[in-house]
Design a protein around this nucleic acid. Structure first.
Lengths: 246, 246
DNA sequence: CGAGGTCTTGAAGACGATCAACAAACGTGG
DNA sequence: CCACGTTTGTTGATCGTCTTCAAGACCTCG
């Protein structure tokens, strides 16, 4: 997502180090997890529903989404993943996928064998806790989405998503100056928000007409952070962006 | 929720042992976590938003709910907890509560100091993984609720909730013969489902008129499991009720 | 018996879905 | 570099689900 060629684990380390301090050995243990990088195209599954993968996938670059498909073909995206996220570390313990993970953009992904994770977690209990923590933050994001879907009107829900994405991208150096790249179609956004594509279109128009954002091509710009968070009732505490001993 | 006086850790052990085998030492290590039981009344918070508790709370008996309150006073419940659930083990790593946990019924709760959890997780890596697993299952439940809220009509969403609750209660011996006790008001149900109390009332009437359930007083009876799961598109895989090495 | 909470019902209204059509953007091949 | 086909975005009209408001019935518990 940016010009220079960052180390494949950089985003993950940034994400973790936003929440706690890593020792040099812990850092290099995490860095050594990546031995291979695969590239997936948009629309391709990184993991599919029902699979029992022997690896967990670290997203090095791109946007991915967890989703479920209903009988009638409707799709609901339950989480958006950005670089630095372990998109299916859950399998390490859940074993069988109860949902799929697909690529929104072209993605670089590092597969990490579960036995390497097992070794890492026994050798480095603190790192083990931090990986646990990452899954707990995923849970916190899920809860916030539930609140947004259940009790917020579509405009606030959409604004909330943009606030969240901006902060998450900023912590991995993939956003700055209230601007980020988010190459998603309005139909995909609908699957995230539980709305129809048509309604997403109208909500975005309203966000633009309120002068809160612009969205041209893949680039989102937030014009007024205060006003956007206000419209969204956005409170970043749930992202747990505080560095403290865990 | 049932007559005899079960050991306070029984439900938690049942819940865990539904997913993996515990050694006798692991069992007793888990049993020794409970040294005190507190009683909370309906409407009382077990933990509140913004707190930094030094203990995590194991629900011994009763129903509790995680929730967030919006600026306008609306409430969204993001998870229902039944006996055997660790309602806020998240704090062990998240440190600061980003939501509250309140009692739906009178609840018996065992507070477990975080330092005891820390010792347990270092002494018993396998138990540590299983506690992690429990939080991953919470995440899977959150995702399923997101799908239900985003893409299912109110009737299916409600049916889905009842299917889920029945299975979760059955694994802790708090339900059998398609019957369980669920003392919740329709307004509270609305906060769970993201619906108004009025609409909940109408949905329940329809579920009754379809002869799928009865709900008299606090007692829910499912008349036709097949038909209810069909209406809900319920697939229990997300509960990960399979005993295997984790 | 009275009071407060809960359930139920009706009527009106809002928010978002669906359907349909067209415009714009994109990518692909000629 | 243009032409064409496909995907994506936009707009309008209509429809349905769910909300809100209001009132009355029921129930429980003091």
């Amino acid at each position: 997502m940016n010009g220079r060629n960052a180390a494949p684990t950089e985003a993950m380390l940034l994400k973790i180090e936003q929440r706690d301090v890593l020792s040099p050995e812990e850092r290099s243990a995490l860095e050594s997890l990546v031995t291979e990088v695969r590239v997936y195209e948009p629309g391709q599954d990184i993991v599919s529903d029902g699979e029992r993968p022997a690896v967990s996938s670290l997203l090095i670059d791109g946007f991915a989404a967890r989703y479920k498909i209903l009988r009638g073909g409707e799709r609901q995206i339950t989480e958006l993943h950005v670089k630095g996220d372990f998109v299916d570390i859950h399998n390490f313990l859940l074993k069988i996928m109860d949902h799929g993970v697909t690529c929104i953009t072209r993605c670089q992904v590092a597969p990490v064998p579960h036995d390497r994770l097992a070794k890492l977690t026994t050798d480095y209990p603190h790192v083990s806790r931090l990986l646990w923590l990452m899954t707990l933050i995923d849970g916190a994001i899920h809860r916030e989405w539930l609140v947004a879907m259940g009790r917020r009107p579509a405009l606030a829900q959409t604004a909330h998503l943009l606030c969240e994405l901006y902060l998450r991208l900023k912590t991995v150096n993939a956003a700055e100056n209230l601007t980020f790249t988010f190459p998603v179609t309005q139909a995909e956004l609908g699957d995230v928000l539980g709305l129809s594509a048509v309604h997403v279109n109208r909500v975005l128009q309203e966000l633009r007409s309120m002068n809160l954002i612009t969205w041209r091509g893949p680039t989102v710009t937030i014009h007024d952070w205060e006003a956007l968070t206000e419209a969204a009732e956005f409170d970043p505490r749930y992202l747990h962006l505080l560095r403290e001993p865990r």
